[in-house]
């Protein structure tokens, strides 16, 4: 088992390296850098000015060197600019070049500085992640139990009226992406046009103080889309299990229907959806970005949009490292949980 996790961790590391490199590469393409220079400097810079601006800040170094610096395996460059000022990757404000450390990459725990927020990337990400964590927690609390319940109820008597109704609900929610359901929910429950005004149409205030009123709509919006998907998976798997021979054996043993569902079918039926729930995380990230933008909740997803649209390279990299790790860790958990749920795969 330990070995298995170790190997998975190795694969994870390689994946993360590859992905961050791709992000790094794309973010460092010259047109992107040019845009960066213009937004940071001023918009009327000429070609040459852009080039010197970039050169002074070390953006024109070879790609691999820059990537190595970011990782922290290559010493941070110190450049004497054409304007005579000495700038270096590792030289923070108020530091002299002598005080600055040689290496300052993620290996040293330094995630760099965001050009948009003029702040430490590590700090930004951890606060934002906390906010998104709060959102995700409530999403999970709402989504997983209701999805499983929906799926099990629908799947235990396939083709019945309950099944048809619940399945239609589930299909409808999977067909409703967050930006559609969000718009509809706001329109119905928060707009002055309909006038119900039960909830707030923005969640900005929920960042400090989440209440039912300002937080329910965003949570519901993310949950709905994922819920339908998980519920359908659970239903399919439950329906399949209910036709299995061993369920018939149980029935002909005289086990009552509720007991068949709970004792015999449930564990077998949850194996497949479990993987799905775990693999749902990267998906949820998508939803998070949309919902945070829609409800103006400044969490991780909102940061991603801000970083990407301003080509804030270091922040963007930080964000991608975190999201890639979230994805990979959930995959790992899903594998381990699968083994745990399914006794047919033994761990030696």
């Amino acid at each position: 088992m330990g070995l298995f996790i170790l190997r998975r961790a190795g694969v994870m590391l390689i994946t993360a390296l590859c992905l961050t490199f791709i992000v790094f590469f794309l973010a460092n393409l010259y047109p992107n850098l040019e845009k960066l220079a213009k937004t940071q400097g001023n918009f009327r810079m000429s070609e040459e000015e852009v080039a010197t601006w970039l050169g002074n800040r070390g953006y024109t170094q070879p790609l691999f060197v820059k990537y190595g610096e970011w990782l922290g395996v290559v010493p941070g460059a110190v450049i004497e600019g054409t304007d005579g000022q000495i700038r270096g990757r590792c030289i923070r404000d108020g530091m002299t070049p002598q005080e600055a450390p040689d290496y300052c990459g993620i290996l040293q725990g330094d995630w760099g500085t965001s050009t948009v927020f003029q702040d430490n990337v590590g700090g930004i990400i951890s606060t934002r992640l906390g906010l998104t964590g709060k959102l995700m927690f409530w999403v999970m609390v709402l989504m997983v139990p209701s999805a499983l319940l929906l799926g099990v109820l629908a799947g235990m008597r396939e083709g019945s009226r309950t099944d048809r109704t619940l399945s239609t609900v589930a299909i409808t929610t999977t067909a409703t992406p967050e930006y559609v359901s969000g718009v509809i929910l706001i329109a119905v429950f928060a707009s002055s046009a309909v006038g119900l005004k039960w909830f707030k149409g923005t969640a900005t205030s929920a960042m400090e103080n989440a209440t039912f009123e300002n937080f329910f709509l965003p949570v519901l919006t993310i949950s709905l889309y994922g819920m339908g998907y998980i519920a359908r998976m659970t239903r399919a798997s439950m329906a399949e299990v209910m036709t299995a021979q061993y369920i018939r054996t149980a029935r002909l043993k005289g086990v009552s229907f509720p007991n068949i569902v709970v004792k015999h079918a449930l564990r077998n039926a949850l194996i497949a959806p479990f993987t799905v729930i775990m693999l749902q995380f990267p998906w949820l990230l998508n939803g998070v970005v949309i919902v945070e933008t829609l409800f103006n909740y400044k969490g991780f997803g909102w940061t991603l949009v801000a970083a990407a649209s301003n080509n804030d390279i270091e922040l963007l990299l930080g964000v991608s490292v975190v999201s890639v790790f979230v994805v990979l860790v959930t995959q790992l958990i899903s594998d381990i949980g699968y083994v745990y749920l399914n006794p047919r795969i033994s761990v030696s």
Partner: peptide, 28 residues
């Protein structure tokens, strides 16, 4: 491995990196 690599990439991030006028200009 390649497939998982792409799947591990948040779709939105990928779009933000790929579908911008700057990237179109590079010809990628």
């Amino acid at each position: 491995f390649l497939a998982n690599l792409i799947l591990a990439f948040p779709v939105i991030l990928l779009f933000y990196l790929l579908v911008t006028p700057e990237i179109v200009a590079t010809g990628i």
